[in-house]
Design a protein around this nucleic acid. Structure first.
Lengths: 221, 221
DNA sequence: AGCCGCTTGTGAACGCAGGAACAAAGTCGC
DNA sequence: GCGACTTTGTTCCTGCGTTCACAAGCGGCT
């Protein structure tokens, strides 16, 4: 009918998810209103930037007062699509996969795992967070039966591409990849990469660049 | 001499880490040279952007031929500081912490955990990846004894800030935070945030946005 | 030796994100 | 009822990142 979302920049969407988390915490704490300054401080961003992010949702605050916590929370939740729970499948139940399956943060944010898959027969049948690990062969069946649109890959890098192909073929439209490998997916399938080693290396580089006075003496080779 | 690293943009550093991983794989596979196009494809980036990233290291390719795999790998490794192993401490040995402690990708990239810490007495004494879990009280001692400069927080959000304070007080200069909370650290301490739920929510939003845009008929003005 | 094709490295333009300052608007106090 | 203060929403501007396009350089072939 209208155009409530002309285009929301991706960086803004990421921050909106952070604001939503903070607002949920404030609401649980009994707070009824917040100012942009306080909210920005809790989210770790600039107040002006926060207001600009919120301006993409249309006016949702009261000048001179601030934002009503519950109202703003619900509006962000609606824009992000958190109001309805989303079915996800998780492939690769190793250490990381187990941690993701057990992570309570997903369930409280509108994501539920409807299928845990692994190729190793030893892992199939184990129960993680009340759910059984299924053989990878049942992937298509579960995706079709649950209309899951999001897949999470936590497998070793060697099989990540084939898992990606299977997910895409099964009808999954969005893939979150933890394997340290650039995946190639067909058009229409979004892939988002999370590389934990890269995060550490960036951190180490920044620290090294800044820490010239490090305890280790740098010797030119 | 002049300035070998005037300033390398943070986004470039993150990609350099990816190139390094790809190059290591190519070297292990016996490849001796690569073109920017092939390397960019394997890393999932634009060829021109890759060349610009590499230009921050000075000329390191041969025109008409490409890049020598081993040479480029070593040069990136030196710039990122991977040549010497870096000591890290990990606080919070829950599901995620266990996965991180066991993750082989860190060790092969120059990061070694010299201390695993948890506040729960039940977890103290367990061995993860050949290392014992220590009580949080020993944090200062271990950081001082190992000169660890990087700390990883994988605790619940409620205690993440106090852990951050302890790490900073112990002398840790760089912190990678997995708790869904914006940390405030003293000046001189770098904090990098990884929020898994945010990644999923961004992915869900993009998928939802496209799902809405697809069935809607676009009308030209 | 000279030419040709291929690939790198760099320069410029475009678009986007971030930050600061300003105007609008609503509420509280008098 | 009116003024002033507080806080939002917006606008401008600066800087960065990304992309495209071209010139420079090197190897191979004739």
């Amino acid at each position: 009918m209208n155009q409530p979302r002309p285009r929301i920049p991706e960086a803004t969407v990421a921050r909106l998810a952070v604001y939503l988390r903070v607002l949920t915490g404030l609401a649980d704490g009994g707070r009824s209103s917040v100012s942009s300054g306080e909210l920005a401080s809790a989210a770790g961003v600039n107040p002006a930037g926060l207001r600009k992010d919120l301006s993409h949702l249309g006016p949702c605050g009261v000048r001179g007062v601030g934002y009503e916590v519950a109202t703003l929370r619900d509006r962000i939740a609606r824009v992000l699509g958190v109001e309805r729970s989303r079915a996800c499948v998780l492939v690769g139940i190793g250490n990381l996969g187990t941690a993701l399956a057990d992570y309570a943060g997903f369930g409280s944010r509108g994501f539920r795992f409807v299928g845990l898959f692994d190729a190793a027969p030893a892992r199939v049948g184990q129960r993680i967070g009340g759910q059984p690990v299924r053989p990878i062969e049942e992937l298509d069946e579960v995706v079709a039966g649950t209309a899951a649109t999001i897949g999470v890959i936590a497998t070793p890098a060697e099989v990540a591409q084939s898992v990606c192909d299977r997910l895409a073929a099964a009808g999954v439209r969005s893939i979150l990849n933890f394997a340290p490998l650039a995946l190639s997916a067909p058009a229409g399938v979004d892939v988002r990469q999370v590389d934990l080693s890269v995060e550490l290396q960036v951190l180490a580089f920044l620290g090294q660049q800044r820490g010239v006075a490090a305890p280790t003496v740098e010797v030119l080779a």
